[in-house]
Design a protein around this nucleic acid. Structure first.
Lengths: 128, 128
DNA sequence: TTCGTTGCAAATGTTTTGCACCTGA
DNA sequence: TCAGGTGCAAAACATTTGCAACGAA
């Protein structure tokens, strides 16, 4: 593949993702960026998101419900997913990288990473 | 919702899932069950899988690549996912439920479960 | 000029659903 | 009998891709 070239669309996507601290879907990002570049297409959003994930600039979060989420925070951290509203939230907790070593002992392959999703009902949904 | 009624299709799906120890997609299950009930439809497979997941008879595994996988093994265990062939494999390892307590301390909601996916290259793919 | 990028639309892959008929209890 | 289950096909989603035009280097 060739060298990356600047694109205001891509820049805008990554900036937006950094500005909002949450974990929007491609479509949510599309709707947001559209307020600045009304002509941007959903395809461009998907193309750039996938490119940014590939170069490690952002992270993709796949959940059992609905579309994939994207995260500008690349430092390792875990997520809480609400079973009711399906929102994905950051989870501040001490490092648990030791589980990788435990998993590696009888693993069917060499482990180079992991993701943990914690499930439950979020505070907002508990109120209702 | 009303009471469950016996159906040979559902029975066949769950038996098949228990027989093969792997984690097939809905379509793989469809193709397998079709050898016994050639008239079964993909819709029926999806409907039953989702029903079985809801009553806790089986488990659904969502991965970043491709269709969801299904697992007849309901006792808690973790999975290894190959970044190359995207196969999902069981991972025998000591219990790490303690991470739930750690996560719960500053969680944005009450945690009632979690899933861990370990990533890497499986033994088969390493050979190639 | 070159080649990555974009907008648009069509295509793909996965999963859900409406409906008329079938079947277990 | 009758509510749940099924097959079929269409619909609903989420995501990818072909292509001609555009734009950064």
């Amino acid at each position: 593949m060739g060298a990356l070239k600047y694109s205001r669309q891509r820049e805008s996507i990554i900036e937006l993702l950094r500005a909002r601290g949450d974990h929007p879907t491609a479509d949510m990002i599309y709707e947001s960026v559209r307020q600045i570049y009304p002509n941007i297409s959903l395809g461009t959003v998907y193309r750039n998101l996938s490119l940014l994930v590939n170069i490690g600039e952002i992270t993709k979060i796949s959940t059992p419900e609905g579309a994939d989420r994207f995260d500008a925070r690349t430092s390792p951290h875990n997520h809480f997913i609400c079973r009711k509203c399906h929102n994905v939230m950051d989870l501040e907790m001490e490092n648990i990288d030791h589980i990788m070593e435990k998993a590696g002992r009888r693993s069917p392959g060499v482990i180079d990473g992991y993701t943990v999703h914690f499930f439950g009902i979020c505070k907002e949904c508990t109120k209702k």
